[in-house]
Measured scan of single mutants.
Amino acid sequence: MEVRTIKVFTTVDNINLHTQVVDMSMTYGQQFGPTYLDGADVTKIKPHNSHEGKTFYVLPNDDTLRVEAFEYYHTTDPSFLGRYMSALNHTKKWKYPQVNGLTSIKWADNNCYLATALLTLQQIELKFNPPALQDAYYRARAGEAANFCALILAYCNKTVGELGDVRETMSYLFQHANLDSCKRVLNVVCKTCGQQQTTLKGVEAVMYMGTLSYEQFKKGVQIPCTCGKQATKYLVQQESPFVMMSAPPAQYELKHGTFTCASEYTGNYQCGHYKHITSKETLYCIDGALLTKSSEYKGPITDVFYKENSYTTTIK
């Protein structure tokens, strides 16, 4: 009895394709271990004539594949690729409408935090270190965002349907971005203890939790000093293409032309909904596939993004 075979390709990165001759009487799992086709788990399936010449994702289970996976995804987590594939199996079914010149995501599976993050990423200057993220990001900007969303979920250790947080998501993504040249110098002034300067680099240099107003941050924000008295913390120097200011959701007025974009969060910790506000020729609110415009805006804002380049204080 002759062994019926077909020729397929296996890959971990969709760049390096490895030619395989597979036995049609055995499952993919018996031949390769966990195997995925377009995100779908085909591990328990036997090869079919229609699979001839198709590319299958496999887990990096030998040295060659491990090197290829690390170079593309910059992670050695053995569960990463499987999590990416199972997320992709959902995100490829989502709709990605162009809204006001940006790629958004039609609401499904509690994905409003991903839509808000995706919209924000198209408006701030950011370059990702893992080629996987950078490639998928370019495709997302062009309207094909399924891979990018699935990668975000995998890097953030999230599953489809789980509630997510924009600030946490951005923080994970910033860790995989090139923020080497970003720098922030802060000064804390206390009447009792004097003053202390701190220099922050990388992710810490672009994120701040405690106030939404970048102007206020430049002037000074009140913080408790270690001595128990009130101290003032203010920005001395900022070198970065953008800054992200966050605070627990509270009524906040966004003035046209003073910011790049913002995240609105309605609801409580267990259950809520994100919308995205962007400042173009007027203010726009993007909620999944829905767009509304207004000249002014007041609502429960939790993150505001500002364009920056270089700032030095005039406070002496």
Rank of each mutant, 00 (worst) to 15 (best):
P34L: 13
Y172H: 11
A136S: 10
D303R: 00
E144F: 09
E239P: 02
A231M: 04
Q216D: 12
I223D: 08
S104G: 07
S279G: 09
K275Q: 06
E52Q: 11
G101N: 11
L121W: 00
H90R: 12
A142K: 14
Y57V: 11
V160L: 04
N129Q: 12
C190H: 00
Y297W: 10
C112W: 01
H74M: 14
S295Q: 15
Q197N: 11
E162I: 03
D109V: 04
N49R: 13
K293A: 13
T19M: 08
V189W: 09
S263A: 15
C227I: 01
L37Y: 12
A136E: 13
H176Q: 12
L17K: 10
Y57W: 13
G267K: 07
Y28F: 15
D109Q: 11
V221W: 06
D135P: 01
E264S: 08
G220L: 01
L254E: 00
T19R: 12
P241S: 10
Y137C: 07
Y172R: 11
C182P: 00
E2Y: 09
Q238L: 01
K316W: 15
F148P: 02
T91P: 03
Q222M: 12
F70Q: 11
R83S: 08
T120G: 05
P248H: 11
Y172S: 12
K106H: 15
K92M: 11
T27R: 10
L235C: 07
G161N: 07
G164C: 04
T5E: 12
R66T: 09
H276R: 00
E253H: 14
K191A: 15
Q98W: 05
P249W: 02
G202C: 03
G202M: 03
Q238H: 00
L212Q: 00
I152R: 02
A289W: 02
T266M: 11
D38Y: 08
Q251L: 13
M245D: 00
K191I: 10
Q230C: 05
N89R: 13
A117V: 12
P300C: 15
V243W: 00
K293W: 11
Y155D: 01
G82H: 15
Q20C: 13
T313M: 15
A142I: 15
T55I: 08
Y113P: 05
N268T: 11
G53V: 07
I315G: 13
K95F: 12
L126Y: 02
A136W: 07
E239R: 12
I277F: 02
N14L: 07
P224S: 13
T211L: 08
D180A: 13
T76K: 08
T27W: 06
T120Y: 04
A40T: 14
